[in-house]
Design a protein around this nucleic acid. Sequence first.
DNA 1: GAGAAGATCTCCT
DNA 2: GGAGATCTTCTCA
Length: 193
Amino acid sequence: MKPLPRSFYSRETAIVARELLGKMLVRLTDHGDIAAKIVEVEAYKGSDDPASHAYRGKTSRNQLMFGKAGFTYIYFIYGNHYCLNVTTETESIPGAVLIRAVEITRGQEIARRNRRVEALKELSNGPGKLTQALNITKAHNGLDLTETKELFICDPEVKESFNTVVTKRVGIKAGREKPWRFYLKDNEFVSRS
DNA sequence: GAGAAGATCTCCT
DNA sequence: GGAGATCTTCTCA
């Protein structure tokens, strides 16, 4: 389980988003490890993307999007939820990929304890759900994903083939026309809208 | 310093 | 299918 290198993330955001599908998100905790396959993502960019936090320039919250690629960008939303993003592009171009849904393949019991639901499908089929299932909070903001620490992303042990679906993003008011949402076809953990 | 909106989830009908 | 929960961050004064 070797983390993906910085060069994977230092590319155009939509390309990174699409290629993150099928990768493994790994969470190491004191109570055990959790591994989850990424099944749904969305790309967010900079000045050409009105839905992005980076659209109106750099602020204290979004500065990670303007920094190096391969770091986490986690923010609190709607008074209840954390959303997990991965930074992309270079230090001069802002960009991030929102991890919207994962399929937990290892550590399911730990994830169940972190959430209050029994159904496996309900554990991680949404951006706010998966952060709760993996116990990801603001404390993990700005983490370097290229190091084997408590949170990183690596290639799957067995590479599966799958079809990728490209659609418009959800849950936003501006920039709805951009085809920057990607998910695995027929995967039941993909969030609906 | 105040007001409004938000990359969502859950419960209720 | 719809509204409430709940609090951080941004914008403007």
